[in-house]
């Protein structure tokens, strides 16, 4: 993500330079004056996104799996609370990308019959994620409620 932000910032700077430095007659005056604002604003956004957001997110994110319900809270500026009953769970995915494997964390994805009722828990400890996914699968099979 950081790499992508650097590349995009560079592209935006180049565009701004192109707009201001070139000698084209057709661009209106305000465009030239404010051209450098675009990369500047993006730079600030990227710094916040990379420097501040993850720790903030970490403070916000919560999850809890009780016997019957999966509860998650995600987000940083905007927040989202989700309740999914285990009895309606259809599939439990346990996923680990290469970066996640490096840091020994995993993502758990719980799906129900509705796309709006599907829940994702990111950055779980890998061992714990495996344990939870197995437990959930067993529990879901026990409580199975076919009424979608």
């Amino acid at each position: 993500m950081a790499l992508g932000a650097v590349v995009l910032a560079a592209v935006l700077c180049a565009a701004a330079w192109g707009v201001t430095a070139g000698d084209w007659g057709w661009r209106p005056e305000p465009v030239r004056r404010f051209a450098w604002w675009v990369p500047a604003v993006y730079g600030i956004y990227a710094v916040v996104r990379i420097g501040v957001a993850p720790s903030w997110r970490y403070r916000v994110h919560r999850w809890e799996v009780t016997a019957d319900v999966i509860y998650t809270r995600v987000g940083w500026v905007s927040r989202q609370w989700q309740l999914v009953p285990v009895s309606r769970v259809q599939t439990v995915d346990h996923k680990q990308g290469w970066l996640e494997r490096l840091f020994r964390v995993a993502t758990l994805k719980v799906q129900t019959a509705s796309h709006a009722g599907s829940s994702t828990i990111e950055g779980l400890d890998a061992e714990e994620a495996r344990r939870i996914s197995e437990e959930l699968a067993v529990r879901a099979a026990e409580l199975r409620d076919d009424a979608t």
């Binding site: 987000g75 905007s78 989202q80 609370w81 009953p85 019959a113 509705s114 709006a116």
Partner: peptide, 10 residues
């Protein structure tokens, strides 16, 4: 038929 709740808040 309600199979989950999601609150979101900006």
């Amino acid at each position: 038929a309600v199979i989950g709740w999601t609150w979101s808040q900006t």
